[in-house]
């Protein structure tokens, strides 16, 4: 019993760890500005380098105790402080950390600075200080007031997922905002343009519905055949006969419900031909398994006496 409980506990802990890890793995470095001369201003009115983190999951993500660093040899350089409600990033939202080397200014001011004119490596480590969640190397060529940002929020791996944004055209700098600003549902737009009369949707959707149910149909056809074979085999085994011999004894195909009902009726008439009901009273013992969940002992209490 103890062994089982221990196993269960281990399984629960493992699941919890996996779930937690899955959540943290959704954290992404999304946009970085190394030299901020006249761009976004922090809550002290200063222009500082900033790092935008993005929660790419569809659930809120609590990031306190993860580490942000610019030094591969010191993964625990800046621990995101505990106890600040603002360290929970809502689903698919952003948070900005200032790389101003002034951690005394608050949770979102880190204890390191980014240096213009050289490659800046930034890494985000999980609470264990060992698991690297995300990393990026900002090229030295990045100009002042421009950012190195993901092309699509939280998506892609490697340098090809990133681009330089200088604020011109659609390459806008978007601190604490989506890198791609969506004003419509692209899927709906696509269907509006490409499938005006709905034929394509009908063909695709009905095809999927039919295939899903056809798959289920085929699967159960096979399962029923296997089931039939297994039950025949078991029957043959219990009769001590071979499967082929038993197959000969099977009832004919044309055996309809009516015929079975007629045979049953005839047997009933033959075996039990009384015109008055026999008055045998059978009392079955009702057995209920005890469970503390349904016990009235725990659900009721005595009426208080004066």
């Amino acid at each position: 019993m103890k062994k089982k409980l221990l196993l269960l506990l281990v399984a629960v802990v493992a699941c919890a760890t996996v779930v937690s890890a899955q959540g943290r793995r959704g954290l992404r470095i999304n946009e970085v500005m190394v030299q901020n001369d006249s761009n976004f201003v922090d809550d002290y009115g200063c222009h500082s380098a900033w790092v935008e983190l993005f929660n790419s999951t569809f659930a809120p993500l609590e990031i306190s105790s993860v580490y942000i660093t610019n030094d591969k040899n010191n993964p625990k350089k800046y621990p995101v402080p505990l106890g600040d409600v603002n360290t929970e990033i809502p689903s698919r939202q952003h948070i900005i950390f200032w790389a101003d080397g002034q951690p005394a200014r608050g949770t979102f001011h880190m204890n390191f600075e980014l240096i213009p004119g050289q490659d800046n490596w930034i890494g985000v480590y999980d609470a264990d200080g060992l698991t690297l969640i995300d990393e990026v190397t900002i090229p030295a060529s990045l100009l002042p007031n421009t950012t190195y940002a993901r092309k699509a929020d939280g998506e892609g791996e490697g340098a090809e997922a990133w681009e330089v944004r200088d604020g011109n055209g659609d390459k806008y700098v978007t601190p604490s905002s989506n890198n791609i600003i969506k004003d419509t549902n692209s899927k709906v737009e696509m269907f509006s343009e490409q499938d005006e009369n709905g034929f394509a949707m009908t063909i695709m959707a009905m095809g999927i519905v039919f295939s899903a149910l056809l798959l289920l149909c085929i699967c159960f056809y096979i399962i029923s055949k296997i089931g039939e074979r297994v039950s025949k085999h078991n029957k043959a085994k219990s009769h001590g006969a071979k499967l082929r011999e038993l197959a000969k004894e099977e009832r004919p195909e044309h055996d309809s419900g009516e015929e079975i009902a007629a045979i049953a009726m005839a047997l009933h008439e033959h075996l039990d031909t009384h015109d008055q009901e026999n008055t045998i009273l059978t009392i079955n013992k009702v057995k209920r398994a005890y469970s503390p969940w349904s016990s009235k002992i725990y659900g009721l209490r005595e009426v208080p006496r004066r």
Binding site: M201, T202, A205, L214, C217, F220, Y221, S224
Partner: peptide, 16 residues
């Protein structure tokens, strides 16, 4: 199991 296909066919109502 082949009756499942009738359930699929009735979904034409949705797409009509």
């Amino acid at each position: 199991p082949k009756l499942m296909l009738i359930g699929a066919a009735a979904q034409f109502g949705i797409f009509g």
